[in-house]
């Protein structure tokens, strides 16, 4: 036994944490390749320093145009755009959540049979594949300029977002609770309402508040492609070189986003 005694101290000295890539050849090849890529990449960026310096002056003038922000002279337009954005946000969030619940139920493998599951996962995938701007362009082409296109866009995006995250939560419910309610002889809807809903309700409320917040921010962007809202006002202000009005709009957007974010954070903390 003593001949083969294990020398822990020697083993500890010899031990090294295993490298990420075990073959040394491959390891150094990867390191060298990454280094070469960075060097070549930096070398190929062409910077016209003269033009950048010129731009600095223009940027200063441009930013100078922001001050002082002018809330008054286009006040009506700003107010109208703001109301449009808020309406768009609330309507699309409410509609999107209502539509996302059935999709989420269908997209939960523990509730839905395979064909329904695949169908609902398909809806989610399509909704999440495209960025809001692209969907907005499509809807603007379909229903014309204005807040309707924006509202449809946000609703569509909300369905994918909510359904995916809600379905994940539904798939994580405790089976025993669901089984117990089923054993009482409850019908399908009662079963969902009494065993699944209580388990996912905090998440549902939290996600809804979060999505309301996202939808307002998105609504400000969608105006840039003609889908209505405060973004439209902002875009128009830039087009007319009314930078002071644009600054006012930006400040209002920042304020509202802060309020939304704080409120939705507070709601989410409350329901946990």
């Amino acid at each position: 036994m003593s001949a083969t005694a294990f020398d822990a101290a020697a083993a500890a000295r010899a031990w090294r944490p295993p490298p990420l890539i075990s073959s040394p050849l491959l390891r150094y090849a990867v390191y060298l390749g990454a280094l070469a890529y960075v060097v070549l990449g930096v070398a190929t960026v062409e910077v016209n320093w003269a033009r950048a310096a010129e731009g600095m002056g223009r940027a200063a003038g441009f930013l100078g145009g922001f001050f002082p922000p002018d809330f008054v002279s286009k006040g009506d337009d700003i107010f109208e755009g703001l109301m449009e954005s808020l309406t768009m946000t609330v309507v699309s969030t409410a509609l999107g959540i209502a539509l996302s619940i059935p999709v989420a139920l269908g997209a939960s493998r523990n509730l839905a049979p395979l064909p329904i599951y695949l169908f609902c996962r398909g809806i989610i995938a399509v909704s999440r594949t495209f960025q809001e701007i692209i969907i907005a362009i499509v809807f603007v082409a379909m229903v014309g300029f204005g807040p309707l296109a924006g509202m449809l866009t946000l609703t569509f995006a909300t369905v994918g977002f909510m359904a995916k995250l809600l379905a994940e939560d539904i798939e994580d419910i405790e089976r025993a609770q669901a089984e117990a309610v089923r054993a009482t002889g409850a019908g399908w809807f009662s079963w969902i309402a009494w065993s699944v809903l209580p388990q996912v309700k905090p998440r549902l409320i939290g996600l809804s508040a979060y999505r309301l917040d996202i939808n307002f921010r998105e609504s400000a962007v969608l105006g840039l492609v003609g889908a209505g809202g405060i973004g439209d006002t902002l875009n128009t202000a830039f087009d007319r070189y009314e930078f002071d009005t644009a600054a006012a709009v930006l400040l209002i957007i920042i304020a509202i986003v802060l309020v939304c974010e704080y409120t939705s954070g507070w709601i989410r903390r409350k329901v946990q």
Partner: peptide, 22 residues
């Protein structure tokens, strides 16, 4: 296997779900 986020009374009444409309 109680539904943890429901009250005691709600859990008890859930025994009547088979007799009660949605």
């Amino acid at each position: 296997a109680l539904v943890e986020r429901l009250t005691v009374m709600e859990n008890v009444l859930s025994g009547r779900l088979g007799y009660t409309g949605f």
